[in-house]
């Protein structure tokens, strides 16, 4: 499959502070790629380099097959959208007026405004002044703005960090629908749950380096032992090993109707992260 982002040996040093060192990865066209790491690990720095806002100290970064320095060209700018943590909205203007500006800048018909506001659950609020909105609402407006021109590639820097669970789920649905229509999504997050449900592949970033990169499924499998936990009617929890010994025990429990629940002992992405990096997210 075609790569939409290609990064090799990418490094960025601020003064004597190394933000990222030697980062390598590829994002395939059509996937949702999760860039996971605790704060300060270099997620925002990577997005800034990939969108031409920051020049790398060394290494190469290509988007749409072109070096990121080419992204200044307005034809490329129409092809990607960015949501970053600092909102960049006009506080004295309404939600509608903020989005109208972006429709005009991107040559998009104004009818798109209602459509994207629907996707972020803000259609009723469109005449509200942005400065009066809550943090979560502001984040949703920023998201609406990032996808108003239906970009091929969407960079989302912690898109749901300020959202309550209901709105996060709504946004996740919207992002999945967008992805199904063909938008490639590069998403940073420190929310492992979000990465697990949304991403096709995830990269673990720690101290400016990628520690691990694979599908959530494969990661879980390769970091799990193959034991299972069985909860019995007497509220006891027993861990059964793989192989005939465990199978026999399970057979006995089931045969005597003692089983309440059975769990495979897969690690969550969060647990794998802690195991790999020795540090917790967020």
């Amino acid at each position: 499959m075609e790569n939409i982002i290609e990064v090799s040996s990418l490094a960025k040093v601020f003064g004597n502070q190394t933000a990222i060192e030697s980062v390598d990865f590829r994002v395939k066209k059509g996937e949702i790629f999760g860039f996971l790491g605790p704060s300060g690990s270099g997620k925002t720095t990577t997005i800034k380099i990939l969108t031409g806002q920051l020049t790398p100290t060394s290494g190469t970064a290509k988007v749409f097959g072109e070096s990121v320095s080419q992204l200044k060209n307005s034809e490329y700018r129409k092809r990607f959208g960015v949501l970053t943590d600092n909102s960049g909205l006009y506080g004295r203007l309404s939600i509608y007026d903020n989005l109208k500006l972006y429709c005009d800048l991107y040559d998009v018909p104004l009818s798109k405004i209602d459509e994207v506001l629907d996707a972020v659950n803000l259609k009723q609020e469109k005449s509200k002044k942005v400065s009066t909105l809550s943090k979560g609402m502001t984040q949703r407006v920023t998201l609406a703005r990032a996808l108003i021109h239906e970009p091929e590639l969407l960079f989302l820097d912690e898109p749901t960090s300020a959202l309550d669970p209901t709105n996060s789920l709504h946004i996740h649905d919207g992002l999945r629908a967008l992805n199904e229509k063909g938008t490639t999504i590069f998403l940073t997050t420190h929310d492992m749950q979000e990465a697990e449900t949304l991403c096709d592949r995830v990269a673990f970033l720690n101290n400016g380096k990628i520690q691990l990169l694979d599908t959530p499924d494969k990661l879980r499998k390769s970091y799990s032992d193959s034991t299972i936990t069985v909860e019995l009617t007497n509220e006891e929890k027993v861990i059964l090993p793989a192989g005939s010994e465990g199978a026999n025990q399970l057979f006995n429990y089931m045969n005597t109707n003692q089983v309440v629940t059975i769990h495979s002992n897969e690690l969550t992405l969060g647990e794998i992260f802690v195991q790999v990096t020795g540090r917790k997210l967020a």
Partner: peptide
């Protein structure tokens, strides 16, 4: 920044 990242 938003204006700079747009096609303007």
């Amino acid at each position: 920044r938003g204006l700079m990242l747009s096609p303007a």
